[in-house]
């Protein structure tokens, strides 16, 4: 474990806590894409398949349970909790996210480190996570103004993978034979997808204005 990875995990944890806080306290999921949340459930479900078979550390298992539990409960809230579900704008959140999964599974079957069920599933979850934010960013373009919590959620979610990139660079230079091109490239693509959001988020913060992405 290194400081970059810890910062990444804490930023990721903060993003799901911000979203849970928003949904649980103000009972609103306005501006939040259910499609992205559903993709994240699949990302965690396919990435942590080995949660009971391979033990890395208490920290690792605990965080996996937290990410699994939070992503499932966010989807549950947005789908089945009456008050929250009412604030979900279904008309705007129309990204066909199931179509995102197909290329990811095909790519995972073609490009992976080992052709085993667990490894292909794990690689699929990496590719899927790289594009999971797309429905949320599309929704953001459509809903004119978004509230601070949703903006912070997206900012933290994008930032965590940025810390992971620093972690991979650090591990590359400190651990011999630590080379994982698949992880590095999909992590880089994932972070780059946030580039324009980061730009407009920074502008809104600098000019102290509401965050608005250009249509």
């Amino acid at each position: 474990m290194n400081i970059f990875r810890l910062a990444g995990d804490m930023t990721h944890l903060a993003s799901v806590l911000v979203l849970l806080l928003k949904i649980h306290t103000i009972k609103s999921c306005a501006g939040v894409s259910l499609k992205t949340q559903e993709l994240y459930v699949i990302v965690f479900a396919t990435r942590y398949l080995d949660i009971f078979t391979s033990f890395v550390s208490i920290y690792n298992s605990l965080m996996k349970l937290i990410f699994l539990g939070s992503s499932f409960s966010i989807v549950w809230y947005m789908r089945y909790h009456k008050a929250v579900h009412r604030t979900y704008d279904r008309e705007q959140d129309t990204f066909r996210h199931w179509f995102l999964m197909l290329p990811c599974i095909l790519l995972a079957l073609l490009i992976h480190e080992k052709f085993t069920f667990f490894e292909v599933m794990w690689t699929f979850s990496l590719y899927l996570e790289a594009v999971a934010i797309l429905p949320q960013l599309v929704l953001l373009q459509r809903t004119r103004n978004i509230d601070n919590l949703t903006g912070q959620y997206i900012f933290l979610l994008g930032g965590y993978r940025g810390f992971y990139i620093l972690n991979w660079i650090y591990r590359y230079f400190t651990e011999p034979h630590y080379v994982h091109w698949i992880t590095w490239i999909s992590g880089l693509v994932q972070t780059l997808l946030y580039a324009d959001f980061f730009y407009y988020y920074f502008l809104s913060w600098k000019n102290n204005k509401k965050l608005q992405l250009p249509a």
Partner: peptide, 10 residues
């Protein structure tokens, strides 16, 4: 033998 390399990152 290289032990089963499990993924140690989240």
């Amino acid at each position: 033998a290289n032990e089963e390399e499990s993924h140690d990152e989240l």
